[in-house]
Amino acid sequence: MRNALEKIGDQVLYLLEMAGRMGLFLLTCLKCVLLPPYKMRPVLSQIQFIGARSIFVILFTGAFTGMVLGLQGYYTLRKFGSEGLLGSAVALSLIRELGPVLTALMVIGRAGSAITAEIGIMRNSEQIDALECMAIDPCTYLMKPKFVAAILSIPLLTAIFDVVGIWGGWLVGVQLLGVNDGAYFQGMYASVIWKDIEMGLVKSLVFALLVVWIASARGYFLHLEREGGFGAEGVSRTTTRAVVMASVTVLVWDYLISAIML
């Protein structure tokens, strides 16, 4: 009994310690983002990595998400004779929920995991220690470009996802299933208001911060992982955990933001 309590206490202390460490890491990174130096080249390189290289996967998933929404929405709305509302249903679902969430999940899978692995390997091979010993702040040198790039790229990727998704819904709803073209777009224009776009934007900004924070922090503190973050196995385990943690956190925050803003 005492043993079990000790283990629980130990685990709670570890989680609190990790939360504190990650919280301080976020504050330090945000401070670095706001303070000079402002170097464009590393930021552009990260925008290319996080943003530009994710475009294909975003186009692909966006199109198919819109298409499946068009398909499902059409058969559901037809039961009530409201096929004309398809444009509105697809656009609202994408702009408020699916666009920001699925974009964030795609970026976690493509770039977030790579960020954790990259920083984790740098930690394991003493490259981060080397930076510190050269009086180069790892947060400014390594994290700042990633944070700025994610905050700029993820909302743009979300916008691309939304637009492609709406056209995917149009392709299935209008071109394949025969919904009226004018009704599709008119319904969308009538129902989507600025508040919906604002919610999507807020979500994508918050998710961008969560994704880059969790991915970077798990890599940065790899050496403090309880089960040992060393070696290839340690990096792979920590990367998996970072992906799971970031995905779950995005979904939790999705609910919280929706609850606050609706």
Binding site: M122, S125, E126, Q127, D129, A130, C133
Partner: peptide
């Protein structure tokens, strides 16, 4: 500092 594994940026 010369690190054990040189710690070069790969």
């Amino acid at each position: 500092v010369l690190f054990q594994n040189a710690a070069l940026f790969d």
